[in-house]
């Protein structure tokens, strides 16, 4: 998994450089969560991306789209060569995922605060259809500023949607400031607990911890699950880690080289 995560991180650096797109640090921050999900948790078959019984995975922090695209490609949903077209004229892979843009992309995201309530609806549908798939939604900490997140938090708990799971990529930054200085997010796990969720805190870069937390869905308590995953923005590239300039900055060719070297991909 570590090897897979490193290769995906390398791709993200390349994609940001080539397409001159921002949000590299936000994408790097959630890679381990996506790798744990796609290689260790989700019941999915890349050959059957529309299988009605598949687990649903929603990257609600749509600005980290490169992480989703690179993960899906690596997992076999589509040809990794398609990643080279990212954000280019005519490419299906845009800076924010569009509806049905590529196999495995469940939802058009980019406007924060949509992934959870839509996932909630999918989980309700799952119950109505008497199916057993699960719905995983990855959100950012900044996204928890959105009122719609807390509307859905209340509703999912009321319906005891135990097949719904969120993973919050808690990297302590939002676009322009520290997330905890912008809004009083902390204590985040306790908030979700108080909202009626089965909430845990994990190291968001520890595959074993992520596998255990996500693998335990549905939880025997019958509650929806919230995983507060402590992460580092820009994870994997020392000079990007916890430096919020990389929310928008695009790496130069030299920075790409250095990043690849650090990732052992040189």
């Amino acid at each position: 998994m570590d090897e897979t995560a490193r290769r995906i991180r390398g791709r993200l650096v390349d994609m940001s450089h080539r397409a001159k797109t921002p949000h590299l640090a936000s994408a790097l921050s959630c890679v381990d969560i996506l790798v744990a999900a796609y290689w260790g948790v989700l019941r999915i078959d890349p050959a059957l991306p529309q299988d009605p019984d598949r687990d649903r995975f929603i990257l609600s922090k749509g600005h980290a789209a490169t992480a989703l695209y690179a993960t899906l490609a690596q997992r076999g949903f589509f040809d990794p060569a398609l990643l080279d077209s990212f954000a280019a004229d005519g490419s299906p892979l845009a800076e924010h995922p569009a509806p049905r843009c590529a196999p495995g992309v469940e939802l058009a995201t980019g406007s924060l605060g949509h992934g959870l309530p839509v996932g909630l609806g999918i989980a309700l549908g799952c119950r109505l259809l008497h199916r057993s798939y699960r719905v995983f939604v990855v959100m950012s900490d900044g996204e928890c500023n959105e009122g719609s997140v807390w509307e859905a938090a209340l509703l999912a708990a009321a319906h005891r949607l135990d097949r719904l799971c969120i993973v919050i990529d808690y990297n302590k930054w939002q676009a322009t400031a520290r997330s905890n200085e912008t809004m009083a997010l902390s204590p985040l796990r306790e908030k979700w607990q108080a909202f009626g969720w089965e909430a845990v805190e994990v190291d968001g870069h520890d595959p074993a911890a992520l596998l255990e937390a996500m693998g335990g869905v549905p939880h025997p308590s019958g509650r929806p699950r919230a995983i507060v995953a402590h992460t580092v923005k820009g994870k994997g590239v020392s000079f990007m880690e916890d430096d919020n300039n990389w929310h928008y900055r695009v790496p130069t060719a030299e920075e790409v080289r250095r990043a690849k070297e650090e990732l052992g991909l040189a």
Binding site: L120, I122, G125, L128, E151
Partner: peptide
């Protein structure tokens, strides 16, 4: 489903249900 006084949720939950074939 009475989703409560939460109109954002109303529309997004409807979206999720439509994605489930409803």
């Amino acid at each position: 489903f009475n989703v409560g006084v939460s109109e954002a949720d109303l529309m997004c939950t409807a979206s999720g249900l439509a994605r489930s074939g409803k």
